[in-house]
Amino acid sequence: MPYTVNCSILLTGRPLLERPQAARDAGFAGVEFWWPFPVAVPAEAEVDAFVQAIADSGVQLTGLNFFAGDMPGGDRGLVSWPARSPELRDNLDIVTRIGERTGCRQFNALYGNRVEGLEAAEQDTLGAENLALAAQAVDRIGGTVLLEPVSGTPAYPLKTSADVLQVLDRVATQHGATNLGLLLDVYHLAVNGADVDRDIEAHRDRVAHVQIADAPGRGAPGSGDLPIQQWIEDLRGGGYTGPVGLEYKTDADDPFAWLPTDQRS
Rank of each mutant, 00 (worst) to 15 (best):
T12L: 08
P149F: 01
T261D: 11
G27E: 12
A134V: 10
D139I: 00
P149D: 07
I54D: 09
R101W: 02
G222F: 05
C7L: 13
D205W: 01
L235D: 04
L133F: 04
R97S: 13
W34M: 15
V59I: 11
A177D: 01
D75N: 09
R206N: 10
A121S: 15
N130D: 07
Y111G: 07
D197C: 01
G176N: 06
S161Y: 00
R97K: 14
D75G: 02
P227G: 12
D139N: 12
G217I: 10
V145P: 06
V207W: 05
R236D: 09
W35E: 11
S57M: 08
S85A: 15
P243E: 11
W231R: 02
R97L: 11
V186Q: 10
A135M: 13
A26P: 07
L88Y: 09
Q229H: 12
L118T: 08
V171D: 03
Q166S: 14
A194Q: 11
L158Y: 06
A208Y: 03
L10K: 08
Y240P: 01
A26E: 10
V210Y: 08
M71Y: 14
A83G: 03
P36S: 09
T261R: 15
D195R: 02
Y248S: 03
L184V: 07
L147M: 14
R140D: 05
Q52D: 14
A194P: 02
T261N: 01
I141V: 15
H203T: 03
E247D: 10
D197R: 13
I54K: 08
A128K: 00
L147G: 06
V41N: 01
G152S: 09
L110M: 15
A208D: 07
F50I: 11
D199A: 13
N91C: 14
E148R: 13
A83Q: 15
Q229D: 14
D205G: 00
L147K: 03
Q230R: 15
R204N: 12
T153V: 15
N65A: 11
V47N: 00
A128V: 14
D124M: 08
P42V: 07
F28G: 11
M71F: 15
G143N: 11
D185H: 04
L10N: 12
G245T: 11
I228P: 03
E87I: 02
G217N: 05
N192S: 07
A215L: 03
N65K: 00
Q174F: 02
D139S: 15
L11I: 11
D56T: 14
I200H: 04
V95R: 01
G30C: 10
Q174E: 15
E87C: 02
D253H: 02
P38L: 04
Q106T: 13
